[in-house]
């Protein structure tokens, strides 16, 4: 009887603990978002979005920063999506389960934990210098693509693994080739999960600062990029730059820019949720 009481107590205690932890996480987020909105919402305007950086806080805007962020985001997507998903498919569906595969698997998992600045150094040497791309958007996007590739590969493999093997067996039994099975059955079934992983990884990329500074993203760029080989700046760098100014008005600017960055991230996460739901409800065997 006593034992039962103890486990009941433990059960209750754990539930309470879980609740406290969850609520405090949400609370911290709410306080953060609330604080940023309180500080920056008044500053946010069409003019702020369309103005160039300036030493006068009230004339300063984030035009080049958000255009730069979008450029980087689009290029990073174009580069990392095919590479990451392709590698995931190969490793999961084609790759043989031998020592090399284990070795690759461990390394990909490790790569996901490498600090982002290291990717920046790699990007600086390989893309900026050896491949002579200079401080371009392309070099920045390639670096960020490398940074998020492990995440995309791992999440792609997880999604592929979630497809029941009976589906593959059934497809094979009907005489479909491996490619037909993957293309017509496995991929459609797992695409929601894959896309979610890709978009979450991109959300991380859009907030990165350190690797881009190393690769040569700039703090003051008074023009919008015209192509992938132009110099650029991104929102996190503009925010970082403003926050480190002593004048309070710049900190308010930073708060307004953070709101824009948060909006971009929220919209992306929203798309991820939407796509996942869509694919999940559509796929029925």
């Amino acid at each position: 009887m006593n034992k039962v009481n103890t486990s009941r107590f433990k059960d209750k205690a754990f539930r309470r603990l879980g609740m406290v932890v969850t609520v405090s996480c949400l609370l911290i987020l709410a306080v953060f978002v609330g604080f940023v909105l309180y500080m920056g919402l008044d500053r946010l305007s069409w003019e702020f979005l369309m103005s160039l950086p300036s030493r006068f806080a009230d004339q300063s805007g984030i035009y080049t920063a958000w255009i730069g962020s979008i450029w980087v985001l689009v290029l990073t997507t174009l580069i990392s999506f095919p590479l990451g998903v392709g590698a995931g498919i190969y490793l999961e569906e084609y790759g043989k389960k031998n020592k090399l595969a284990t070795f690759l698997e461990i390394n990909i998992a490790n790569l996901a934990g490498v600090p982002s600045i290291i990717y920046g150094l790699l990007g600086l040497e390989v893309f900026v210098r050896i491949m002579q791309m200079g401080n371009s958007i392309l070099a920045g996007a390639l670096t960020l693509a490398l940074l998020i590739l492990p995440i995309i590969i791992v999440s792609t493999r997880e999604s592929l693994r979630a497809v029941p093997s009976s589906i593959r067996d059934a497809s094979n039994a009907l005489g479909a080739s491996k490619w037909q099975t993957i293309w017509n059955q496995v991929l459609p079934a797992s695409f929601g999960g894959i896309l979610t992983g890709v978009i979450l990884a991109l959300s991380r990329a859009v907030g990165e600062t350190a690797p881009l500074i190393v690769v040569g993203a700039l703090a003051y760029v008074p023009f919008a990029p015209r192509g992938p080989l132009d110099e650029f700046t991104v929102l996190p760098i503009q925010i970082f730059n403003w926050v480190s100014r002593p004048q309070h008005e710049f900190v308010i600017n930073a708060a307004a820019a953070i709101i824009v960055l948060l909006l971009i991230t929220f919209v992306m996460n929203g798309i991820a949720v939407y796509l996942r739901n869509r694919w999940q409800s559509k796929m029925k065997w």
Binding site: N135, I213, G216, A217, L218, A219, Y220, P222
Partner: peptide, 8 residues
């Protein structure tokens, strides 16, 4: 003239 400034 396009002047860009970085903070490395």
């Amino acid at each position: 003239t396009r002047v860009t400034v970085g903070v490395s």
